[in-house]
Write a protein that binds this DNA or RNA. Structure first.
Ligand SMILES: [Mn+2]
Ligand SMILES: [Mn+2]
Ligand SMILES: [Zn+2]
Ligand SMILES: [Zn+2]
Lengths: 133, 133
DNA sequence: CCCTTAATGAGAATGATCCTCATGTTCAGA
DNA sequence: TCTGAACATGAGGATCATTCTCATTAAGGG
């Protein structure tokens, strides 16, 4: 848990409030530097980790395994529809998936079931750009 | 696409036929060595990559981002219920998820929708072990 | 057989992420 | 406001999975 508020942590929080695309730790670090915030990469990683543990940010993995972070508008469990090109994301619900996952897990004798369900695609804006070129 | 059959590729294919848990490339390399198969780690990576591209093996990511491979019994699209402890996996269907994903994606103006939905938990066998200790 | 060319593998390179530890900062309490 | 103990930072190094390089090996069609 975060115990002390620092300049760096405030900067990360502010950035996450402005950016609503899924971004890697390194991208966020670049953005912070671009905004004039002095902050070390290790601190960005640590802060994101802490926020993730606290459920403040959602983490998902790009196809290459890189971790992507985003502060969603709601803290409750939900799923995402993410643009593979630009990272923009929509929060969506998975109607019935939660109950279904529990049932399937139990039917196979598994306990402590967790599930992931993520959608990705190309957003309208990125599709338009591609069409131009 | 694979153009030539080699001792190494045969060994990987045989191993994948025997192991039905999700395993990392390095674990598979260890297993091959243990079976007396001389094979380089790079070759294991390359072979798994090729098999994955061909849809012969499924790839999913552990929580730490490491890639895990498994040759499933069916080549058609499906989902998994994986034990986080031992890697054993059950193949499951996601009734209605495919259509739902398409619909949600389209509703948000996204194209080329792909979805992932994976369940994980602790299998009965691993739960029993944990209970002993 | 015999080449052409794909495949292999040892070792180096890459890249994300974590760790170390000396130094800087926060903030509860005086 | 003043301190100091504990927490936080960051530069640089360590890890570790995965990929690349390139000299060497070996499929397999003809
Ligand atoms: Mn869900
Ligand atoms: Mn599906
Ligand atoms: Zn986009
Ligand atoms: Zn298990």
């Amino acid at each position: 848990m975060i115990q002390r508020m620092t300049r760096q942590r405030s900067a990360v929080a502010e950035l996450l409030a402005d950016v609503d695309d899924f971004r890697s730790a390194q991208q966020l670090h670049e953005l912070l530097r671009g905004r004039g915030n002095e902050i070390g990469l290790a601190t960005v990683y640590r802060t994101l980790q802490t926020l993730a543990d606290a459920g403040e940010v959602d983490v998902l993995r790009a196809e290459d395994g890189e971790a992507l972070y985003r502060r969603c508008s709601r803290r409750e469990h939900h799923h995402h529809l993410v643009c593979r090109r630009c990272g923009t994301a929509e929060e969506i619900d998975g109607p019935g998936v939660e109950a279904w996952a529990e049932a399937v897990g139990a039917a196979h004798g598994f306990s402590d079931i967790v599930h992931t369900m993520e959608l990705s695609g190309i957003c309208a804006s990125c599709a338009a750009e591609a069409g131009d070129a």
